[in-house]
């Protein structure tokens, strides 16, 4: 096992709850660097895209900071491990219907849609909800079957089942986590889901530490 310290970079696009993510990594013994600079992202061994905010505004900021190109290169070409959280998960889809029509990174085949609710169900979907794990490794390796995580969102990623690693149920089935090669993403907030959330982040850290870079 390669034990040399890996560089985790949390992408700062001006609106994420970055501190919560960094705090959780710190608790797990890893220092994650917050940055909006191309040269830091270039050097990253793993990239975290956190999320609080509106889709369009986030993509606008990423464009203004000129980070789209470098992130495309790191994730698609260099195949560096990437973890998207909440809005960060939605940004890697092709597009979103939040606030009009906005294009995303398009790293996965999927569209961000508003959660459909019926009768008396409330939106946003906020609070702790159970998830069903479809793919245990590597994120949900140490998580018991009846587990719950903290969600807060009104939109979700509608994508092919083959890349879904966990789902949750509101009025409809909602993608809770996805994984595809070097890409991971969770709709819930692992940094705010107490022990279970920290275990998910630890799963990602372990994956990064054992990852064979191209």
């Amino acid at each position: 096992m390669n034990t040399s310290k890996k560089t985790f970079v949390v992408v700062d696009y001006g609106m994420g709850n970055l501190k919560s993510v960094v705090n959780a990594f710190k608790f797990l013994g890893e220092s994650a660097k917050i940055s909006n600079k191309r040269k830091d992202i270039e050097k990253a061994d793993a990239i975290i895209i956190p999320g609080v905010g509106a889709f369009g505004e986030a993509m606008n900021n990423l464009q203004k900071l000129d980070l789209v190109k470098i992130l495309n290169k790191k994730v698609l070409k260099d195949k560096v491990p990437m973890l998207g959280i909440c809005l960060g998960m939605q940004l890697i889809a092709q597009d979103s219907e939040e606030g009009g029509f906005n294009k995303g990174f398009g790293w996965i085949d999927g569209h961000v849609r508003k959660i459909k609710v019926y009768n008396n169900t409330r939106l946003p979907h906020v609070g702790w909800n159970d998830i069903s794990i479809l793919k245990k490794k590597p994120l949900f390796n140490n998580i018991s079957k009846d587990c719950n995580f903290y969600f807060v969102h009104s939109y979700y990623v509608d994508c092919d089942e083959s890349i879904v690693s966990a789902e949750t149920k509101y009025d409809v089935k909602i993608t809770a986590a996805i994984q595809k090669e070097n890409m991971f993403a969770t709709q819930f907030h692992p940094e705010k889901s107490q022990e279970n959330g920290l275990r998910v982040l630890k799963g990602f850290i372990n994956f990064v530490q054992n990852y064979k870079y191209a």
Binding site: M15, V52, G53, A54, E57, P124, V126, S154
Partner: peptide, 9 residues
Amino acid sequence: SSGIYGSQC
């Protein structure tokens, strides 16, 4: 504020 940070915030 919700336009920027999302209404969930």
